[in-house]
């Protein structure tokens, strides 16, 4: 099974890339280590969205809510309870997945745009609660200075922790992507009626995809807390959700690794453009318009189209 999934040719560059990332932190300045770690967290989030958006064809408009739920759960367990650390690590993604199950259970009964609308309203509901429940979440102030155990105290340690979790999640996502379940999901995206006709339970597959995706979003939320040591209601706000949406599109949402590239580009742009001007969203908007007009397949999708004949990208391709 694994031989079919990971063929050697595409496996080597990925391993090399991983090793480069492993030896980077001691060499590069602290600031860059931090930026790369932010990229890791954001790309995990974008990839988790793409499981439902790109592979499942569902308009998951409020994915950020689950990210925030994961982050808040982890933060609250660390600050409000005396439970051990690992409970928090486990609870973040699990609570996010449970919320995903609840939200998804209502949403999958609706089609396309109404799906997205119901999700925005449910997500906004979660946001409004976190924003107003001062006694629990500190409202719009958020929770800052969340204590971390000594093993994650330095930036380099959290960098390695995030990298390893990200790698595990990516392998997991890739296995799901290539599994019969993943293939069925893509078939549902392309033609739901036909899938229904051959006896696939479309709704249940979509719901399962949402739960899995929200689980990974919860993991990303936990990693965010590990890196930033704070949570605030903006994590649950719909603007962030649309930003993740753009990342998927920017990278190429019909590809597996595309969203990761999209997230990395977005984070890099925000960081380095942000140094020169406060009007960063203006530039994001212009880039988005250029993308819509000239690169509708996304950056990664574009390169895959270009190099298709050479056959070097078969791992990254979907078809």
């Amino acid at each position: 099974m694994f031989r079919n999934i990971f063929n050697l040719k595409s496996f080597v560059p990925i391993v090399v890339f991983f090793i480069v990332l492993l030896i980077l932190p001691p060499i590069i300045p602290r600031f860059y280590t931090y930026i790369i770690a932010v990229m890791f967290v954001t790309s995990l989030l974008a990839m988790s969205l793409n499981m439902v958006l790109g592979h499942g064809g569902m308009f998951q408009f409020h994915h950020g809510a689950f990210y925030g739920v994961g982050a808040y759960t982890f933060a609250l367990i660390l600050t409000k309870t005396t439970l051990p650390m690992w409970v928090g690590f486990a609870a973040g993604p699990i609570v996010a997945a449970l919320v995903g199950l609840l939200v998804g259970w209502f949403c999958v009964r609706l089609n396309r745009l109404y799906f997205g609308m119901l999700q925005i309203s449910l997500g906004s509901l979660i946001w409004a609660i976190a924003f107003r429940w001062y006694s629990l979440t500190s409202g719009d102030d958020g929770i800052h200075g969340i204590p971390m155990p000594s093993i994650l105290s330095s930036l380099n340690c959290s960098y390695y922790f995030i990298l390893i979790v990200l790698a595990i999640c990516l392998v997991g996502m890739y296995l799901i992507f290539k599994s019969p379940f993943g293939t069925t999901l893509q078939a549902i995206r392309d033609n739901p009626q036909r899938c229904e006709a051959v006896g696939v339970n479309v709704r249940r597959h979509q719901l399962a995809a949402i739960v899995i995706a929200t689980f990974f979003a919860g993991v990303a939320g936990v990693l965010f807390v590990v890196l930033e040591r704070s949570v605030f209601p903006d994590l649950l706000f719909w603007v962030l959700s649309l930003e993740i949406f753009i990342m998927c599109l920017l990278g190429g949402w019909f590809t597996f690794l595309g969203p990761m590239l999209g997230a990395a580009i977005t984070v890099a742009l925000r960081t380095f453009v942000g140094i020169y001007t406060e009007y960063w969203t203006l530039i994001l908007g212009v880039i988005l318009i250029l993308l819509i007009f000239f690169l509708p397949e996304g950056v990664f999708g574009y390169f895959i189209e270009k190099f298709k004949e050479r056959g070097t990208t078969d791992m990254l391709e979907e078809k």
């Binding site: 949406f245 009007y279 960063w280 203006l282 994001l284 908007g285 988005l288 318009i289 819509i292 509708p296």
Partner: peptide
């Protein structure tokens, strides 16, 4: 963009929101 995919129209309006928001600030 009228001939294009529906999602692209939606995203265009989002891009417009980002741009107009910053223009107002400017």
């Amino acid at each position: 963009l009228y001939e294009r995919e529906h999602l692209m129209l939606l995203l265009f309006t989002f891009a417009l929101m980002l741009i107009l928001g910053d223009l107002v600030k400017l």
